[in-house]
Computed example of a mutant assay.
Amino acid sequence: MSGVEVERRDGAVWITINRPERRNAYDLDMARAMIAAVEDAADAEAVVLTGAGGAFCAGGALNNLGTPDPEGLRQLFTTSLRLVDALRACPRPVIAAVDGAAAGGGNELVVACDFAIATQRSTFGQTGPKVGSAPVLGATNLMSVQIGEKRAREMAMLCRRYSAEQALAMGLVNEVVPDDGLEAAVERWLAEIHQLSPRYLEIAKISANQWWNLSKDNMSSGLGMLIQAIGSEDMIEGANAFLEKRRPDFRGARSAREDER
């Protein structure tokens, strides 16, 4: 099982990330499956990206960062860039249907989607510097255009969590609905899209990608820095702390390793 379910419903393609035991964090195969599903949806009216089991997505899986495989991580990182780019390049509107936590790379998927609808219990935020990484695929660049530079830096650098209502006020999501009303709200948006011209929706989306296109070089350079930092002391400490459910001690871990030398 890939952990990604794809279903066509009345002209829309629904892509469901289905690994709830790890809050729908995706691995390399799942990222590739999502890319294929988005690219195969070019003939649909719209795409809906959602998560199963009470979470949206926790980004890339961290289970192998504590003992990193450089080539495997390189592939996961570069494929993550392909994933967010596929969402933006898709000629059809893409809706993030968020129920639960959108964290780390999952929050960046929300940034990459054209629209986002969230339940009241949903939360949003980045995890990068807290887990020995950095959110270079949307949160450090394009998100500033969506919610403002100061707030985007706060989210990307300080790793705070925000409620659905806060995300709505910032402009990260378009609508907040009751916890049992997400699917009905998405269907309402899809019905509105159904009344519009696919040809001119595509033109509008491509034209609206100006800031995304300007951010892509920055994403590539940031990704290159992440790849060069694979296996760093901060990455290992952050990943191990996350997996062990403890607070990371980046400075203490670094001092301990220096003493061992």
Score class of each variant (00 low, 15 high):
residue 43 D to H: 14
residue 51 G to D: 11
residue 101 A to W: 01
residue 134 A to L: 10
residue 50 T to S: 12
residue 157 M to P: 00
residue 143 M to E: 13
residue 47 V to T: 12
residue 122 S to K: 09
residue 187 E to H: 01
residue 102 A to V: 02
residue 96 A to V: 05
residue 109 L to N: 08
residue 50 T to K: 07
residue 62 L to S: 11
residue 245 K to W: 05
residue 132 G to H: 10
residue 186 V to A: 03
residue 218 N to Q: 10
residue 39 E to F: 11
residue 33 A to Q: 06
residue 193 I to S: 01
residue 16 T to F: 11
residue 34 M to D: 03
residue 261 R to Y: 09
residue 192 E to V: 12
residue 181 G to T: 10
residue 37 A to C: 11
residue 109 L to H: 08
residue 244 E to F: 01
residue 130 K to M: 08
residue 189 W to I: 03
residue 11 G to K: 05
residue 248 P to E: 09
residue 226 L to Y: 02
residue 104 G to M: 08
residue 187 E to N: 11
residue 100 G to V: 06
residue 261 R to T: 14
residue 191 A to L: 03
residue 173 V to H: 06
residue 205 K to L: 14
residue 215 S to I: 07
residue 123 T to V: 13
residue 108 E to T: 07
residue 182 L to F: 09
residue 114 D to E: 08
residue 149 E to Y: 05
residue 181 G to E: 11
residue 204 A to T: 09
residue 202 E to I: 00
residue 45 E to I: 01
residue 257 R to S: 07
residue 220 S to Q: 14
residue 11 G to S: 04
residue 174 N to H: 09
residue 135 P to Y: 02
residue 19 R to Q: 13
residue 197 S to T: 09
residue 112 A to G: 05
residue 129 P to Q: 10
residue 129 P to E: 08
residue 134 A to S: 15
residue 136 V to T: 11
residue 126 Q to L: 12
residue 129 P to S: 08
residue 199 R to N: 04
residue 53 G to A: 07
residue 124 F to V: 04
residue 231 G to M: 02
residue 91 P to A: 10
residue 8 R to G: 04
residue 9 R to Y: 06
residue 74 R to V: 04
residue 59 G to R: 09
residue 54 G to E: 11
residue 87 L to R: 07
residue 49 L to I: 15
residue 171 G to F: 04
residue 127 T to Q: 13
residue 184 A to N: 02
residue 77 F to M: 01
residue 212 W to G: 09
residue 58 A to G: 15
residue 58 A to S: 15
residue 92 R to I: 05
residue 126 Q to F: 01
residue 107 N to I: 00
residue 46 A to P: 07
residue 171 G to L: 00
residue 227 I to Q: 03
residue 45 E to Q: 14
residue 10 D to P: 01
residue 215 S to H: 08
residue 229 A to I: 02
residue 4 V to I: 15
residue 178 P to Q: 10
residue 79 T to Q: 05
residue 112 A to W: 03
residue 160 R to C: 00
residue 183 E to Q: 14
residue 15 I to D: 07
residue 205 K to Y: 02
residue 69 D to L: 05
residue 242 F to N: 08
residue 232 S to I: 08
residue 244 E to Q: 15
residue 194 H to R: 15
residue 216 K to A: 08
residue 145 V to T: 15
residue 133 S to H: 08
residue 5 E to Q: 15
residue 182 L to N: 11
residue 154 E to Y: 04
residue 41 A to C: 06
residue 85 D to P: 00
